[in-house]
């Protein structure tokens, strides 16, 4: 039985931007300042099983969108292969396109003069969905996603979140077998995000052989939804397993969380012996800093504490905790988050 998605040593290199004499006002906004070639995907080999809800985690620029574009037949690999539903994306896109759809967060598709419903209907026509079937599904999905009262609003009148809901409906309306979701909950409020998460999960679980490949920056979202997760950074897959197994991987390590007075000088932590990785976030309203350390053992704790107190900062809480997906992420790609 073929995998829903399979890649073998998939590599994608973007040629460096040609330096153009022409300076468009628009072009300055795009701001890709690198000029040399970029390896967006580096020998990526993954297998996503039929019926799986597969997640991709990685910092900005890790290559997630690039992977999805290749799988969605929008971009050709530089080398290696990718198969979707058993077909090679480079050689045989038609049967793939029949089976897939893609939704990206923050996209602005459609025509401003059409209503939300008409826009989705139009896209469904490109997949040959009979109008009646399409309209039935659109109405059903609009109810589910809470867009029903905006069904006849022109797209240009929709808010960012409403637009995103419309895009989700566009993705589901063609009843794909494999759905690529690139940060699907971007810009949604907590409630709407939950509705969509539940719908996706239910869509995969309740039907046979529906597969979702999802990228996200929300750890909890990935942890809660995905059967398996790949962690990607700099175009390389660092790990790929179930959320439980990923967390177990760093079980040998110890996670400590500290809450201290806002502290600026954090560079010294990274050079400490026994500190595998760490992250910090400032809580401005309380004037405090939250620190998370991934340690090889409990040895360095004393040194960390003395470093903080020697700066005249107070430690408000210290706690050893079970690792979360976030900790796995920090432990693997933490350097991107310094």
């Amino acid at each position: 039985m073929p995998y829903a998605v399979e890649t073998r040593d998939l590599t994608r290199i973007f040629a460096g931007k040609k330096k153009r004499r022409i300076r468009r006002k628009r072009a300055t906004g795009e701001g890709e300042d690198h000029l040399g070639p970029v390896t967006a995907l580096d020998q990526v080999s993954i297998q996503i099983r039929d019926g799986e809800l597969f997640g991709m985690l990685g910092p900005n620029g890790a290559g997630k969108t690039t992977l999805i574009k290749i799988l969605a037949t929008l971009l050709l690999p530089t080398s290696g292969q990718a198969f979707v539903a058993g077909h090679d994306v480079a050689k045989d896109p038609f049967p793939i396109r029949q089976r897939i759809n893609m939704v990206s967060g923050g996209e602005t598709s459609g025509y401003g003069l059409l209503t939300a419903r008409e826009n989705v209907w139009m896209f469904s026509q490109f997949y040959g969905v009979p109008s009646k079937v399409s309209k039935g599904r659109i109405d059903e999905l609009m109810h589910t996603f809470g867009l029903w009262d905006k069904r006849d609003a022109k797209v240009r009148m929709l808010s960012t979140g409403q637009r995103q809901k419309m895009n989700m409906i566009r993705g589901f309306v063609t009843d794909p077998d494999i759905l690529f979701l690139d940060e699907p909950t971007l810009g949604l409020d907590v409630n709407a995000a939950r509705v969509i998460r539940d719908y996706i999960t239910n869509w995969v679980r309740s039907q046979k052989s529906k597969t979702v490949l999802l990228t996200t920056h929300y750890m909890a979202e990935a942890d809660q939804m995905c059967d398996r997760i790949a962690i990607i950074d700099n175009g390389k897959i660092l790990a790929c397993d179930t959320p439980e197994n990923l967390k177990r991987m760093i079980r040998t390590e110890t996670t400590f969380r500290l809450e201290v007075d806002t502290i600026r000088d954090i560079a010294s932590f990274s050079s400490m012996e026994g500190v595998k990785n760490f992250s910090h976030t400032d809580d401005i309203s309380k004037n405090r800093t939250h620190l998370t350390f991934i340690l090889e053992d409990e040895g360095p704790v004393a040194e960390i504490l003395s470093t903080i107190t020697s700066q005249g900062k107070k430690v408000h809480s210290l706690q050893k905790s079970e690792p979360t997906l976030e900790d796995v992420f920090i432990s693997m790609v933490g350097r991107g988050f310094e």
């Binding site: 025509y111 401003g112 003069l113 059409l114 240009r156 009148m157």
Partner: peptide, 10 residues
């Protein structure tokens, strides 16, 4: 009417 920054492609 909120039309300052509308887009009207078709």
């Amino acid at each position: 009417a909120g039309k300052i920054d509308m887009t009207t492609s078709y």
